[in-house]
Design a protein around this nucleic acid. Sequence first.
DNA 1: TTAGAGTGAGACGTCAATGTCCCAAAGTCA
DNA 2: TGACTTTGGGACATTGACGTCTCACTCTAA
Lengths: 190, 190
Amino acid sequence: MSTSGTESGTRSRTRRAILAAAAATLARDRKATLADIAEAAQVGRSTLHRYFADRNELMAAAIVDSFGAVEDSVRAAAIDQGPALEAMRRLIAAMVESGDRLAFLFGDPHVLEEFTDRFEPDMSVPTTLDLIKRGQEEGVFDPAASPEWIQRVIWALTYTGWEAAEKGELPRHGITATVIRTFESGVVVT
Amino acid sequence: MSTSGTESGTRSRTRRAILAAAAATLARDRKATLADIAEAAQVGRSTLHRYFADRNELMAAAIVDSFGAVEDSVRAAAIDQGPALEAMRRLIAAMVESGDRLAFLFGDPHVLEEFTDRFEPDMSVPTTLDLIKRGQEEGVFDPAASPEWIQRVIWALTYTGWEAAEKGELPRHGITATVIRTFESGVVVT
DNA sequence: TTAGAGTGAGACGTCAATGTCCCAAAGTCA
DNA sequence: TGACTTTGGGACATTGACGTCTCACTCTAA
């Protein structure tokens, strides 16, 4: 069960299917049972327990996994390069792409809080704040808003876009543009 | 137990304490047990059951109650009067004031969905969507954004403001101004 | 083909939350 | 004060989710 050891292809695939199903299922229903998750992963409940002894272990692993997925996506956006405004657009696009994972991680405020000690200080969140601060220094982001507030707004709008698409109110391909537009200019015509 | 009958002052007070505690507690922890809610209401668990037979009944009553509280608050904002922009500012202020109740109602998407059939919206209260459409006709709200999207943005920002204050990142008295500013102008300096 | 890896189904036992009931104590009002 | 209302706390049974375990079956790689 050590993460360091090499896993057979089959086991590795099953493990990932469970983790992905956990994130996707819990993002849509926070009260989902382990049976629900196992079903979503097309796996028996006993198999799920074979990989993750208890709910906490699964949660911790799913958080680390989802966080890693989001990190990869954000890393690919290279948000420390180029003008802050353009970097922010790439960041938002990357976050929207990780919709499921983000909704799982941030949909329930308690999810992350209870597991903050399970993983090491990450790269993506601090760099988001870095990007915001850089943007403020460049004079493109509202200096009256705290970086923390702006970060919350990004999460909130991204989640809202994901949720709207989830309910069919917004086409998937339109999420990014809509979120970026609202994030940048708000809703009032000037 | 009929809602139509007159209730003694004591019972009425107890009932309201339970409903308010339910909304406040569930807004902060969606997994709160009935024992948690009873404790928050400073009431015995058996007393809670005396007023609400089961969890569903309590949920339904709490939703109706919270919805009514928000409706009252919104009605006082008279959002069908005056310029749409100013009406929107009053609406947002009213929503921020109802922070707890809104966080309870909209914090978990499933809460409302499961109980939509339990209550009818008060038709005498002008809806948020009406105000948004009016604003678009007046040319003050982005015509490229759907009214539903704008409504979601209002909810999301209000909730974010409430949450930020809840975690001490934002002073209570600053929520409204911050939410309005972000809602109207976004985050990018033009 | 064959041994071993991996799996599904399901039987248990456990546990926390729930819902019901009762009764003594405290509160309320005439 | 005395009748009536309301409450708190505890005993109890029920339920659904969990976690553990076994066994027969399927798949995979040599």
